[in-house]
Simulated assay, not measured.
Amino acid sequence: MTNVSFEYGVVQAGQFDQLGQLVTQCFNFAPEHWPVFGERIGQANHRIVQVGTQIVGGLGIYRLGQYFGGCSVPMAGLAAVGVAPEWRGSGAASVLLAGTLRELHAEGMPLSALYPATQRVYRKAGYEQAGLACRWSAPAHSLDLGERQLAVEPIEAHFEPLLAELYHQFAHRQPGLLDRSRAIWERIFDPGSDRARLFAYRIGPLSAPEGYVIFCQQATERGYDLGVRDFVALTPQAQRRLWTFLADHRSLAEQVFWDGPPVEAAALLFEEQHCRLQAERWMLRIVDLGAALNLRGYAPSLEAELHIEVTDNLLTENTGRFVLSVFGGRAEVTPGGRGDCRLDIRALAPLYSGLFSAGQLAALGLVDAPPKAIETAERLFAGPVPWMNDHF
């Protein structure tokens, strides 16, 4: 495929069905699900690459926030990034990603994240591993903590502001979790292709709720498994009530599955070590370096200055020397400085998120800095391992 002219742009109304045919083939989901998926993202948030009138690739953009250092940083979540099979290896995906990232940078979007099916094309565009998505499981009977005093009451299985408020109280303290848009909440309550029935419960009285849980029952040969879609437990009593409530399904429920942090603290409460973990890594791209560093939170007690030199071959506005000055939990980024800490835009992603420390990245040859700069970077970006409990 030599001398092919790709054109990047926003999908037009007359192209929506054509894009749907491509996406449903790429991701092997039923054509009747495309209108729901496509409209959830919103037609204005679909991007395509085409040759003439033929769409050869496309993606969707979820406009979200992501919590780092206790602050919500605007983030573009890329979803359904697909290229027609006959156009793979042609460079279409690179054109699509480059066009999207240049557009996002122009509008001042600090971050972009995604779940990769393959890493190579995304690394070429400046993405790198930056956090974990963890699926835990345990036998239902093993979760019983004997707490049945706190009320657990059924609620409607659909979005309501109370859930968003409880979620925010939990999520803003967890690096990597999403500041959810309405579209992400709709995904949680989507029954999916198997039309699973969803159940939702509030933990604690309506006057003083302490959490919630949303789950479905997935049939097995002898009973069912519980697939937890989302939960929050804000107090120690709510934690114990949540797990006991799930365990109380054990007459027929075999396994309970839930999304949680890489180190699940709740496992400390269970009598035996029956929890099992499956994990994958999501990727992050620093789109607007100054905005990303400015909007992230930092430890309030820190007062430090880090001189960095960054290389970004795609978004060249991010290339250069910068001084990151942090005081009172906030940051200011200014051009210039000594460039003590040298790294490319990919390596900045796991440093920024806290997945890897500056010392770990230096040991891999991804950061070049003297010991004092390494120490400063480690203090600035220290924190728990970043994770996400939402997929998109």
Rank of each mutant, 00 (worst) to 15 (best):
Tyr167Glu: 05
Leu178His: 08
Glu165Val: 14
Ala208Glu: 07
Pro205Ser: 06
Phe170Pro: 00
Arg195Met: 09
Val152Gly: 01
Ala196Leu: 15
Ser181Ile: 07
Glu153Asn: 05
Glu153Arg: 12
Glu165Tyr: 00
Leu198Val: 06
Glu186Ser: 06
Ala200Glu: 04
Leu206Phe: 04
Gln174Gly: 05
Phe215Ala: 00
Pro191Glu: 11
Arg202Ser: 03
Gln174Met: 12
Ala208Cys: 08
Ile214Met: 04
His168Glu: 10
His172Trp: 12
Arg180Ala: 03
Arg173Met: 08
Leu163Pro: 07
Gln217Leu: 14
Pro161Met: 09
Leu178Trp: 12
Val213Phe: 03
Arg180His: 07
Ile188Val: 15
Glu153Ile: 14
Gly176Ser: 08
Asp179Thr: 06
Asp194Pro: 01
Ala183Tyr: 02
Ala171Val: 11
Gln169Lys: 13
Leu162Met: 14
Glu156Cys: 11
Leu177Trp: 03
Gly223Phe: 14
Arg182Gln: 14
Pro209Asp: 01
Phe189Ser: 02
Ala196Ile: 08
Ala164Phe: 04
Ala208Ile: 02
Pro205Ile: 06
Gly211Thr: 03
Ala208Thr: 07
Gly192Thr: 12
Leu206Glu: 15
Pro161Lys: 08
Ser207Asn: 12
Ala219Gly: 01
Gly211Arg: 05
Leu163Glu: 02
Asp179Ala: 13
Phe215Glu: 02
Asp190Trp: 15
Tyr201Ala: 02
Pro209Met: 00
Phe189Cys: 04
Val152Leu: 06
Cys216Gly: 09
Pro175Thr: 03
Pro205Thr: 05
Glu160Phe: 05
Pro191Leu: 14
Gln218Phe: 09
Leu166Phe: 01
Glu153Met: 11
Pro205Asp: 02
Pro205Arg: 09
Leu166Gly: 00
Ala183Met: 08
Leu178Lys: 05
Asp190His: 13
Ile184Ser: 10
Arg187Ile: 11
Ala157Asn: 07
Ala171Lys: 09
Leu163Asp: 01
Glu160Arg: 10
Phe159Trp: 14
Tyr167Ile: 06
Ala196Phe: 11
Gly211Ile: 03
His168Phe: 11
Asp179Tyr: 12
Ala171Ile: 08
Ala200Cys: 13
Ile188Thr: 14
Glu156Tyr: 07
Ala219Asn: 06
Ile184Pro: 03
Gln169Tyr: 09
Tyr201Ser: 01
Tyr201Ile: 04
Cys216Val: 10
Val152Thr: 12
Ile184His: 11
Glu160His: 10
Glu221Met: 09
Cys216Asp: 12
Pro191Arg: 13
Gln174Phe: 04
Ala208Pro: 03
Tyr167Gly: 00
Arg195Asn: 11
Gly211Asp: 05
Gln174Trp: 05
Ile214Ala: 03
Glu165Arg: 15
Gln217Met: 15
Glu165Gln: 15
Trp185Met: 10
Ile203Gly: 00
Gly204Met: 10
Thr220Asp: 07
Gly176Ala: 05
Ile214Ser: 01
Val213His: 04
Tyr212His: 05
Ala196Gln: 13
His158Ser: 12
Gly204Val: 07
Pro191Asp: 09
Pro161Gln: 13
Leu198Lys: 06
Leu166Asp: 00
Ala164Val: 06
Ala171Phe: 03
Phe215Met: 03
Pro175Val: 01
Gln218Ser: 11
Ala171Thr: 08
Arg195Leu: 10
His168Pro: 00
Gly176Trp: 09
His168Arg: 15
Ser181Asn: 12
Asp194Lys: 13
Leu198Asp: 03
Phe170Thr: 02
Ala219His: 08
